[in-house]
Design a protein around this nucleic acid. Structure first.
Length: 578
DNA sequence: GCCGTTTTCGGCCCGACTGTTTTCAGTCG
């Protein structure tokens, strides 16, 4: 099982911490941290690149030494320099470092001077005053760390973006009600970039009286704890989630928004670019270093324009090559929710959906969709009340009768058909041939090893009746790991067989994810954004799939269901070798 | 350790807040 990018990134992050504790050059620390962040957003697995002997140094932030370390960890499973450094430091340093409020310096002292190696021991050392006795530590500092530890645990939890959006919207509404002087108020940070999980919520606003707004914010009944409260920013806890609020005058809002939308790596690169132009960027504006004159920006587009850059949408601000491309005017016009003309994955009460067929169709019409596919589960999905052949035949007939009565929307009679453990489909080819649209999905035997799972999905794609693979990796955010399917091999097979790959919009799925979608886009694999609706409200989750597609640099042309009906049907029939 | 429409060497993003301090280190984003 090759090592994943996420695992390699983790090692570089920890290596950076070890180097920092050792007191080595802060720039070396930053280089490792930068490499870790870059690796996380890479669209290709490094193990794949090593296997193909691709030049890792083509990636920004990866030079000779880091490339060699990556090669080492991919081929041997270990990084000697990291293991050596880890062994040379007292046990537990890295564990203690995970605790919010404790940095490398403090972690080192706690591990060395106090011999603390676990979080439990740390709690005792905090409580009995041993930590407070260390230099530059005191009563208040230790109490604050202890409290965070007890209320939020050792590691900051990240929540799916779909769960944090409502919290953000609730806080915005509450603060607006209490603060009529508040003008703009909007989320920034990872939430605005549509990262799949969010660690904290950043809210940005404008007001002529920032301090009054911040006071009101800290006093909101929703707030369980105030973490920091200064004249320009405040941080609080709401439902266990940290929310930061910054307020500036209206004419500086563009700068504030840009600064706190990030990503961190994107901003660093942008500020480096500014430095080369004799400029300095902060959250209030752009300063000419020689004259000290500061220019303020009320909107982000004019800020990017001032740096001779095309506007970069938040979803693309990942610190990869977006700034270079913006300089060349090569930022594409990304797909938007309004571009979606159809939805190709929806369930009714015939299987595990809540609403009857009529309600699902009516809601789709109200959203202005031109076509939908009704795709209830197949017979093997007994838990999901899957349809046997008889029920399917009646269901299809019912769908076609309704469809014939509706001039303004096309309803395709389809099915979400189980891909069985051996890669065969859960209905016969004859039955599949009678359907207008077939989603092939894995719902069972998810623990298969890599070879078996990959072969299974590829075999399904080789079936000429399968139009799209649903939720390819089967992950459930926070609950189930992705299957062992080799995504690269599967995408290559999708290209070869002309099978589309779904971007599933269910909040806990978001499957395929952004980096996979980027790879599919680069390879030319057709994608379909589907909500997998189980009740009519679920159609609105399309915005989450759009977020993934935008982070993958998708334009409308990369997504089949942006095509009008005729074009869409021609496309899925034309793509597939039948 | 990385990188170059100033550079293959000499730079490397910017600020808020806190607590422990008499001027700032540490942490965070």
């Amino acid at each position: 099982m090759p090592i994943t990018n996420a695992e390699i990134a983790e090692v570089f992050d920890r290596l950076a911490a070890l180097v920092e504790i050792e007191g080595d050059s802060p720039f070396k620390v930053r280089a490792y941290q930068r490499a870790a962040r870059t690796i996380t957003s890479l669209p290709v697995e490094l193990s794949q690149m090593v296997q193909e002997t691709a030049d890792l140094r083509a990636v920004k932030g990866i030079g000779e030494q880091i490339a060699a370390k990556i090669h080492e960890i991919v081929t041997t499973g270990q990084m000697q320099s990291y293991e050596r450094k880890k062994a040379a430091l007292p046990e537990g340093v890295l564990t203690i470092l995970e605790v919010p409020g404790i940095g490398p310096k403090t972690a080192y002292r706690i591990a060395t001077d106090l011999g603390v190696t676990t979080v439990d021991e740390l709690e005792r050392a905090l409580a009995d005053g041993r930590v407070a006795a260390l230099p530059r530590m005191g009563e208040k500092a230790t109490e604050s760390i202890l409290q965070t530890l007890q209320t939020r645990g050792a590691k900051g939890k990240r929540l799916p973006v779909s769960l944090t959006l409502p919290i953000a919207e609730q806080v915005i509404a509450a603060l607006r009600e209490r603060c009529p002087s508040l003008k703009t108020l909007a989320p920034a940070g990872s939430l605005r970039r549509f990262e799949e999980t969010v660690g904290d919520i950043d809210l940005m606003g404008t007001s002529d009286d920032p301090e009054k707004v911040l006071d009101a914010f800290a006093d909101l009944p929703l707030v369980s704890e105030v973490l920091v409260h200064g004249p320009k920013k405040a941080s609080v806890l709401v439902k266990g989630m940290q929310i930061d609020l910054r307020i500036v005058p209206e004419d500086q809002f563009g700068s504030l928004m840009q600064y706190f939308t990030g990503s961190r790596e994107h901003n660093i690169q942008l500020r480096e670019l500014a430095v080369r132009k004799g400029l300095s960027i902060n959250e209030y504006g752009i300063t000419h270093v020689d004259t000290g004159e500061m220019v303020a920006f009320s909107d982000e587009a004019s800020l990017y324009s001032y740096l001779d850059l095309q506007y970069i949408p938040p979803e693309l601000r990942q610190g990869l090559d977006e700034i270079d491309l913006a300089r060349q005017g090569a930022i594409p016009h990304l797909i938007e929710e309004a571009d979606l003309l159809g939805d190709l994955h929806a369930h009714t009460d015939q299987s595990d959906g809540r609403d009857p067929l009529e309600a699902m169709i009516q809601a789709a019409r109200e959203r202005g969709l031109q076509y939908i596919a009704i795709t209830d589960h197949s017979r093997s999905s007994t838990i999901a009340n899957g349809l046997n052949e008889d029920r399917l035949r009646h269901h299809v007939q019912h769908i076609r009768e309704l469809d014939s009565l509706l001039p303004d929307i096309k309803v395709l009679a389809g099915s979400e058909v189980d891909i069985r453990a051996d890669g065969t489909m859960d209905y016969s080819d004859e039955i599949l041939a009678d359907l207008d649209f077939v989603v092939g999905s894995v719902h069972s035997a998810m623990e298969q090893d890599k070879a078996a799972m990959t072969r299974r999905v590829v075999r399904a794609m080789e079936n000429p009746r399968v139009d799209v693979i649903g939720h390819l990796t089967c992950r459930l955010l926070g609950h189930r790991h992705p299957t062992n399917a080799d995504v690269e091999v599967v995408l290559q097979a999708a290209l070869r067989t002309g099978t589309a790959v779904e971007i599933n919009c269910l909040p806990h799925r978001l499957d395929i994810k952004d980096t996979h979608a980027r790879r599919a886009r680069d390879l030319g694999v057709p994608m379909i954004i589907s909500t997998d609706s189980h009740k009519f409200e679920d159609y609105s989750q399309a915005r989450l799939g759009i977020g993934i597609a935008r982070r993958a640099w998708c334009e409308p042309k990369h997504v089949l269901n942006t095509l009008p009906l005729e074009g869409f049907l021609a496309s899925i029939k034309g793509h597939k070798r039948r």
